[in-house]
């Protein structure tokens, strides 16, 4: 992966997620800023640490905690 792109991947992902939230009613009717922020945080975390170190439970906790707010 070109390193410049690797650095920007988090930003690209955030932009794409925001576009999805705006365009898809199933998302914007149910999810708020806290959930979007948790999803982006989970993505960055998984990408940074790699799948070997990041378990499904870690990602689940990150996302589920924001849904309970």
């Amino acid at each position: 992966m070109p390193s410049t792109l690797e650095n920007e991947l988090g930003e690209i992902y955030e932009r794409e997620v925001e576009k999805l939230i705006e365009s898809e009613s199933k998302y914007h009717s149910a999810l708020g800023a806290a959930e979007v922020s948790a999803v982006v945080r989970a993505f960055r975390f998984a990408l940074e640490h790699g799948p070997d170190k990041v378990t499904v439970q870690m990602l689940y906790d990150m996302i589920d905690d924001s849904s309970g707010d």
């Binding site: 690209i12 794409e16 999805l20 939230i21 998302y27 959930e35 996302i63 849904s67």
Partner: peptide, 16 residues
């Protein structure tokens, strides 16, 4: 909300 967040996360990766 958790399930939809995971769907959003998957769709986001596809779009990325």
């Amino acid at each position: 909300r958790t399930r939809l967040s995971f769907e959003l996360a998957c769709d986001g990766v596809e779009k990325t």
